[in-house]
Amino acid sequence: MHPNEVKALIEAALPCTAVEVEGDGHHFYATIVSPAFEGLKLLDRHRLVKDRLKAKLDSGELHALSLRATRTPAEAAP
């Protein structure tokens, strides 16, 4: 899987204002900015992303996804 495909999966799974994905085809590292994270602590942000991508993760189609940063648009503002 190409990092751009992972990016598309994330964007389809939750509303995002920015997504960056790096990876080698097996392990991926994502930075996600989403209003869906508003009011959620970090654990719940990660749970939300993993939950929305559960089918892809469980099937092995998406093998390993690390979340580097999960921010709200306000937190991501410079």
Partner: peptide, 9 residues
Amino acid sequence: IGGSDIMKE
């Protein structure tokens, strides 16, 4: 609290 990703963040 979380796993290693969450700890890093």
